[in-house]
């Protein structure tokens, strides 16, 4: 199986935007933040044709930034993203139509003053996927496909519920006939009973249209449900990558293990209280990430090498890898406890 989307050594740095005054203050030794944030740091990753890659991590881990880099919305500081061998940013600045994104908040991602049919139609018209004359029928087809009444194209976003708006956002993305769909926390702002509707729609559409997709979420149960493979991110780096069943069933990286342990699970079978497995401490500031392995200050099995040497992604077997110096020893040790 070959890579369809290839992400090679992508880094994205956000520098502080300093005003003239702040620059002068910084020169004079004032207390001005001049450090930059490496939101994504040297990520290499591939997505195979037709698969759903889950991208999971806590807030600030860089998963959304990576998603935007793959979509060609945000150019990486260094590194490349290619689809089927072709770079996503043709001239280095402009996004491609081959990747489309569904954003987190459907209340913010639709233009409040534009009829929703028009919102869905304008991309395909601009790129010649349909004609102005034919746009109505084209949009109605997509509305039907995502489970919306085609008669609703004349309405404005405020006339829809959150779930319906997310369907419109999905229709807008798919109407561009992309090869790759990026879903950036598409159900995070929806009610629980609506989440299931949107997840089902996603599963159905990616299967029927044979879409390749990257599904970004902080919700492990959602990731586990929709993904074929999963990449776990921590402080801008991928720490573990593998088939979803294996990673969830037997996490290799201490962070993955701790993350899974701290997610509250639905308690159904016992009246007694569950024990939380908590990770000590907090996520360090991305302004000054720890040396060596990013996770070492919170890691139960860190040694001196973790403070200095940055672990690279090592294959555990053909299709699974982890960035940890001690993943074998650590896991073994924990099991003996």
């Amino acid at each position: 199986m070959s890579a369809f989307v290839q992400i090679t050594d992508v880094t994205r740095v956000f520098g502080p935007k300093l005003s003239l005054g702040e620059k002068i203050a910084a020169k004079l030794g004032g207390n001005v933040e001049t450090r930059s944030v490496r939101a994504v740091s040297g990520v290499t990753l591939s997505v195979r044709k037709g698969e759903t890659l889950g991208l999971v991590g806590e807030s600030g881990c860089g998963k959304s930034t990576l998603g935007r880099a793959i979509a060609g919305i945000l150019p990486p500081t260094s590194g490349t993203v290619t689809i089927d061998g072709a770079p996503v940013m043709a001239d280095g600045t402009k996004a491609t139509t081959r990747v489309q994104t569904v954003f987190q908040d459907p209340f913010a991602s639709l233009d409040p003053r534009m009829k929703v049919g028009h919102t869905v139609a304008e991309g395909p018209i601009a790129h010649g996927l349909t004609t102005r004359a034919d746009a109505r029928r084209y949009v109605a087809d997509w509305f039907d496909r995502v489970g919306l009444d085609p008669a609703w194209v004349e309405r404005h976003p405020h006339q829809f519920s959150g779930g319906q708006r997310q369907r419109i956002a999905i229709a807008r993305a798919l109407a561009m006939q992309p090869d790759v769909l990026i879903c950036d926390e598409p159900v995070a702002s929806l009610d629980v009973s609506i989440q299931a509707q949107i997840i089902n729609l996603f599963l159905e559409l990616t299967r029927d249209l044979a879409l390749t997709s990257v599904f970004i979420s902080h919700d492990l149960s959602v990731i586990q449900h929709v993904s074929d493979r999963v990449a776990v991110m921590y402080l801008g780096r991928i720490v573990e990558l593998g088939p979803v069943g294996e990673v969830f069933g037997n996490p290799a990286h201490p962070y993955t293990k701790a993350l899974f342990g701290s997610v509250p699970k639905l308690v159904l079978d016992a009246d007694e209280l569950v024990r939380f497995e908590t990770i000590e401490g907090e996520v360090p500031s991305p302004l000054s990430p720890p040396t060596g392995c990013n996770f070492h200050p919170r890691c139960p099995c860190a040694t001196t090498i973790c403070q200095t040497g940055r672990p690279s992604m090592e294959p555990i077997h053909d299709y699974r890898s982890v960035a940890c110096h001690h993943y074998k020893a650590c896991l073994g040790k924990e099991e003996h406890d």
């Binding site: 519920s161 779930g163 629980v192 009973s193 989440q195 586990q224 639905l266």
Partner: peptide, 24 residues
């Protein structure tokens, strides 16, 4: 019952979830 059944943890990965139709 519908709310609990619609949770992803309640279904086999990749299988359709038991959704509650409509909205609030």
């Amino acid at each position: 019952a519908g709310l609990i059944a619609s949770l992803p943890a309640m279904a086999k990965p990749g299988a359709p979830l038991n959704q509650i139709a409509g909205s609030t």
